[in-house]
Simulated assay, not measured.
Amino acid sequence: MTKMEIFAWGLSGSLAVDVVTAAQFCNSAQINFPDRYKRFAFYMVRFLLALVAGGLAVAYEIDKAILAANIGAATPLIIQAFAQGLGNVPAISTQTPVVDTPTQSPNG
């Protein structure tokens, strides 16, 4: 396989994750797509993530299409592992952070 083919399979594997997610919403009794699918920024970030997925498949020197697609699908987890390995760089989180509100001190 050429590097462009490997890149394309990695990119496709990444995009396939969202296709499967969208199909799950379409197969439910009531179709309610999450708000993220209504935002242009989601598609920009998703496209950039797919490009990273293709690049990772090439960087790992994958020689089989299915393996390149697997790397593409696993790219968010791989990026999280990279971030955690750096130590003080916060990992990507899908949870809403809890913010403590400051209280007044007794002295005022």
Rank of each mutant, 00 (worst) to 15 (best):
A8T: 07
A8E: 05
W9N: 04
W9L: 05
W9D: 02
W9G: 00
G10S: 05
G10K: 01
L11S: 01
L11E: 00
S12Y: 04
S12D: 03
G13R: 00
G13K: 00
G13F: 00
S14Q: 07
S14K: 07
L15H: 01
L15F: 05
A16P: 00
A16Q: 02
A16K: 02
A16N: 03
A16W: 01
V17L: 05
V17I: 07
V17G: 01
V17H: 00
V17C: 02
V17M: 03
D18R: 05
D18F: 06
D18G: 04
D18K: 04
D18E: 12
V19H: 04
V19D: 03
V19E: 02
V19Y: 06
V19G: 06
V19L: 11
V20Q: 05
V20Y: 07
T21S: 09
T21P: 00
T21L: 10
T21R: 11
T21Q: 09
T21V: 14
T21A: 12
A23L: 11
A23S: 10
Q24K: 15
Q24D: 09
Q24H: 13
Q24L: 15
Q24N: 13
F25A: 10
F25D: 07
F25L: 10
F25T: 03
F25I: 04
C26Y: 09
C26P: 00
C26W: 11
C26G: 07
N27S: 14
N27A: 14
N27M: 13
S28N: 14
S28W: 06
S28I: 03
A29T: 11
A29S: 13
A29E: 13
A29D: 12
Q30F: 11
Q30C: 12
Q30H: 15
Q30N: 14
Q30I: 15
Q30S: 15
I31L: 14
I31E: 07
I31P: 03
I31N: 09
N32F: 11
N32P: 05
N32E: 15
F33H: 12
F33P: 06
F33W: 14
F33K: 12
D35N: 12
R36M: 13
R36S: 09
R36K: 15
R36F: 11
R36D: 06
Y37P: 03
Y37I: 06
Y37L: 08
Y37F: 15
Y37A: 08
